[in-house]
Design a protein around this nucleic acid. Sequence first.
RNA 1: GGUGAUGUAGCUCAGUUGGUAGAGCAAAGGACUGAAAAUCCUUGUGUCGGGGGUUCGAUUCCCUCCAUCACCA
Length: 297
Amino acid sequence: MKEHKLIVIVGPTAVGKTAVAIQVAEHLGTEIISADSRQIYRELTIGTAKPDEAELKRVPHHFIDSHSIKEDYDAASYGRDALSLIHRLFEQHKFLVLCGGSGLYVKAVLEGFDEIPDVPDEIREHLTKNFEQHGIVWLQEQMCALDPEHFAALDQQNPHRLMRALEVKIGTGQSIASFRKQAKLQHPFEVIKIGLELPREELYSRIDARMDQMVAAGLFDEATQLYAYRHHNALQTVGYQEIFDYMDGKYDREEAVRLLKRNSRRYAKRQLTWFKRDEETLWMNPGNIQAILNLIN
RNA sequence: GGUGAUGUAGCUCAGUUGGUAGAGCAAAGGACUGAAAAUCCUUGUGUCGGGGGUUCGAUUCCCUCCAUCACCA
């Protein structure tokens, strides 16, 4: 029996993760490590459904407002940063809560990534530029020429995957496949994974209602102020891109709101697909706090 | 009450010179190890309003009923 326990709370957007995590953390007298790839940015507030001030006061949170949209941050960096924080916090706490909807971020903490040497930024810039100019065919040709074996195995229509594979091949001289060891991190603490789930219809009406609330709270104003940063990675985000396109005159405000809701629903579906694959996750209704607490004790 | 139009997928509609039907939107399922709220792949879900007639065969033609809409009273 390991002495420390990490309570991991995952689930789709708008299912009620924040409220559950706070109640669990309060009950255990501990802190919350957020695993949300957008709530880390201090410039994004309304559109990311961050915990509000009162909630942040009730329980100490980490990785909320910890970064700026002007910085580049990614899942691997998060995984390293979060894990070292977890080790530190376990010196004071028996329990910790890790809560968030970014599946890859959670995976970065729990399983880790294979070690792949850093590659210079210029390589990715070069690839991105050529992709923009010549399209995906150019990436496919490069990949086919440089690493035909892995090219055959990967998702050939996916520009991000092609660019990642190419930057590793160019930067290290080795195929990205050669770094894949499939080794998972071993932790000195116990992990309890809880997935929060609601009937699909209920989840979707919650998403729609929350989008209306965000719009009423000034989401369009927030996005307008961030327009200049719209090409930053942090703003490749549901809730902002739709408004930038509206500002560009691609459609009217009503259509923007419709797309905000639709894209949030689709995002929730993708999250569910990701989290459902993990057979260790225990699925619970977010309204049943008592059952959730029983799982932990 | 009269005249006309419409009734096909969850929605808006197309179509079948008679051989049981297809687009857009919405939706569903999936992949995913360094951009992950990203990126990518797959999928048409249907008593063609009800009933009857003609026909080898009707969603299509004819009759009738129902519903909706418009206009006239």
